[in-house]
Amino acid sequence: MIEARNITKFFSVVNDDRTADGLTAVLSVSLQIPEGRFISLVGPTGCGKSTFLEILAGLQAPSEGEVWIDGRRVLEPLPSSRKEMEAYRRRYRFLSPIANSLLRDRPKHDIAMIFQDYAVFPWMTAIQNVRFTLKLRGTPRARRDELAKKYLAQVGLAGSETKYPAQLSGGMRQRLAIARALSVEPRIILMDEPFAAVDAQTRERLQEDLQELCTSTRQTVVLVTHDIDEAVYLSDEIIVFSPLPGTIRNLIPVNVPRPRRRGDPELTGIRERVLAIYRHDAEHLCDWSI
């Protein structure tokens, strides 16, 4: 169970003329994602989806609000008053709040994430990348090789195991990132546009795989995507973000039993609803940022 309570994220930015400015990337987003649910986040570009995902993963502290995963708080929000600031600084003066621990490899929560820009390590070969994450999760050495090979094959990277990311194409790198995240068999998986750079056929196959995986293992998935068809096809619920600052514009449940069929009229209907929201926003563009 992931619970986001009133998540707000400010960024301070410096303008060209050296004046400071504030930017609200995410504004008071509250969300409950029960175990085993597949949620999609869609919204116009630059509306704070990636930021929200990183807050869920505990990679950025929210400015306000809290994220709880299975009854444990992910990160405390950033201080808002000077007194809080001092206490916060003192508490985290040696290790930043997003650090795990000094010596022991152990994730705070059972989360895997696929980053928008992949972030696979260029100094490790494909298989070393996967083995590295397996090692971080404490998989015994003997099983790492076999598991890594299995997941690389699943995303169609069999035969490219010993290549460095620089030798892989953009789409292959993305699939490597997918394999790396899936290999640790996490209970929660956060994906930031994971299928953006792969060809249509591979994308479809990966979507089927993902669908199957989620129905069989009850993983909780949060998927950020620009592909509305994909969101409709895969998710239990679609969350439409409004343009900056990102807030929840609509929650659209997709109550279509699985396994689903592409081009199902019910799915197309939902797709039309999402598109209508987009169109409406484009026509009645309201400036939230004031």
Binding site: N100, L102, D105, R106, P107, F115, V120, F121, L136, V184
Partner: peptide, 26 residues
């Protein structure tokens, strides 16, 4: 980004130094 991606999977600071920082700074 590399630090974040290692941290999500649970890398300790020591592992980050050994497997990320040093290689990136080679």
């Amino acid at each position: 980004r590399y630090l974040a991606s290692a941290r999500v999977f649970g890398a300790s600071e020591w592992t980050l130094i050994r497997s990320v920082y040093i290689w990136h700074a080679l």
